[in-house]
């Protein structure tokens, strides 16, 4: 999979470079700057994660959000996703780390979609723009959508038996 990603990136860079050198170099500079900026945060998350994974028994993680965690695991991932406030560039790598520990896709889908669509912590901001009634409706729909998406992902990846 990573191999394909490098090929796609290479082709995109090549096309962009042929069309406009300045823009491409600018993009590369922007990418390096941003990557460097998040490196400490990123490494820290990885360090805490590796410590956590080795300190906590594997069976505990499997029971809470693993393949056999059932509805509680799904609701837990949705709940954490709704409450947490983290940028996607931390969330998706974290999902990928969890995937290597055998956490099913539907749990990751529930977490990531809830993270993007439900913002309990950003509620004041939403309220300011939308009024509190509409903000509540929007968050509830976001939560239901996350639940539905998680279930469909689970069914398609054959992680949830129907």
């Amino acid at each position: 999979m990573e191999f394909g990603l490098w090929i796609v990136t290479g082709i995109a860079l090549l096309i962009s470079f042929c069309k406009n050198r300045g823009k491409t170099i600018g993009a590369l500079k922007m990418a390096t700057k941003r990557l460097w900026k998040i490196t400490p945060l990123f490494l820290s998350v990885m360090a805490i994660f590796s410590f956590f994974i080795t300190a906590v028994q594997k069976s505990f993680i499997q029971e809470t959000i693993g393949a056999d965690s059932g509805i509680t695991g799904l609701l837990l991932s949705l709940g954490i996703g709704s409450l947490a406030f983290m940028p996607g560039f931390i969330a998706f790598p974290l999902c990928a780390m969890l995937k290597t520990q055998g956490i099913p896709f539907y749990i990751l889908a529930g977490f990531s979609v809830a993270l993007m669509n439900v913002g309990i912590l950003s509620f004041p901001l939403q309220k300011q723009y939308l009024g509190w009634k509409v903000a509540v409706v929007r968050n509830v729909t976001g939560f239901l959508a996350a639940l539905l998406i998680a279930i469909i992902v689970g069914i398609i990846f054959r992680e949830i038996a129907i």
């Binding site: 990603l5 490098w6 796609v8 990136t9 995109a12 860079l13 962009s16 491409t24 993009a27 590369l28 922007m30 990418a31 390096t32 941003r34 990557l35 990123f42 560039f89 790598p93």
Partner: peptide, 10 residues
């Protein structure tokens, strides 16, 4: 990570 950041910047 490098690929993801380059694609987004582009």
């Amino acid at each position: 990570l490098p690929c993801a950041f380059i694609l987004i910047a582009l």
